[in-house]
């Protein structure tokens, strides 16, 4: 890909603080016992995308911009619950979890953050920025042969976000970004547990293609807002910001 000339983003606007417009709020399924969705006033913005798609960079930019614009933000991500994140890491390092167990362990982690991070944040009127949501968990499980109906029942507990941005970046570009960051590929992100290839590089490409395919299917069901992430971070952010502005304005 030809190198892009870096350019500056639109300047932040410090003068006008917009109060986000209230919209209807629902769960995908039955939700969580005793939780009234209508009381969750804040906004839930999800950024999805395969590894190396630039999610964390974009979330940082979103945070800076939103806070400059007077909005209180909270970030959440997978495997960050106080409840099970430690054990999940331990189990992953030993590669000892079988498929359904792993899936439910992640669901536990997600539920804990839903109840202890997302709900309180939204109740207080904050903007929740989720670095991945149930779609990553579903895509990973579907690539490992899980049943869609089973997953939809399980994640019927999840709140429907105000918007789901999907950062679409070519696999080749993502490999390069992964190497530029750590000079290494991760065991799980390469799907090494699936025995696709003994070589990590090949396995990474194959696995990521499988996950991407599942994301495409999920897009049909859940309707993501696709953002072309092959551009420079600033260019990508410009679009993300414009679209977020209309989410906050309720348009």
């Amino acid at each position: 890909m030809a190198a892009k000339t870096p350019r500056k983003n639109r300047p932040f606007d410090f003068t006008r603080i917009v109060v986000p417009k209230q919209t209807d709020r629902r769960f995908y399924g039955h939700g969580i016992p005793g939780v009234d969705a209508q009381k969750l006033h804040g906004k839930l913005i999800v950024v999805e995308g395969c590894d190396g798609s630039g999610r964390s960079t974009q979330i940082q930019k979103l945070t800076d911009w939103l806070e400059s614009a007077g909005h209180a933000t909270t970030q959440m991500g997978l495997k960050r619950s106080t409840l099970v994140s430690e054990e999940l890491n331990l189990a992953q390092n030993g590669n000892t979890l079988s498929h359904t167990t792993m899936s439910l362990f992640y669901a536990t982690d997600f539920a804990d953050q839903l109840e202890n991070v997302i709900f309180p944040g939204l109740k207080a009127g904050r903007i929740l920025l989720a670095d991945r949501y149930i779609y990553t968990l579903m895509a990973r499980d579907l690539a490992r042969g899980s049943d869609m109906g089973w997953l939809q029942n399980l994640y019927g507990m999840a709140l429907i976000p105000d918007v789901v941005f999907y950062l679409d970046v070519s696999a080749e570009e993502r490999v390069q970004r992964n190497f530029a960051k750590d000079f290494a590929l991760d065991y799980w992100e390469s799907g090494m547990d699936l025995g696709l290839s003994r070589e990590m590089f090949d396995s990474f490409l194959k696995y990521q293609a499988m996950v991407e395919k599942e994301f495409k299917k999920l897009h049909k069901t859940y309707g993501f807002t696709i953002i072309d992430g092959n551009r420079s971070p600033d260019e990508t952010f410009d679009e993300l910001r414009t679209k977020t502005e209309s989410v906050l304005a309720g348009t």
Binding site: I32, L83, V84, S98, T101, L104, T108, A111
Partner: peptide, 27 residues
């Protein structure tokens, strides 16, 4: 740990036991 600290909601209580069961079931 979760039980000692009384950290569980009905949902996470249910899911953590399902995880335990799945681990024994599959392995």
């Amino acid at each position: 740990k979760a039980k000692k600290r009384e950290l569980l909601s009905p949902t996470t209580f249910s899911l953590i036991h399902a995880t335990d069961f799945a681990d024994r079931y599959e392995r």
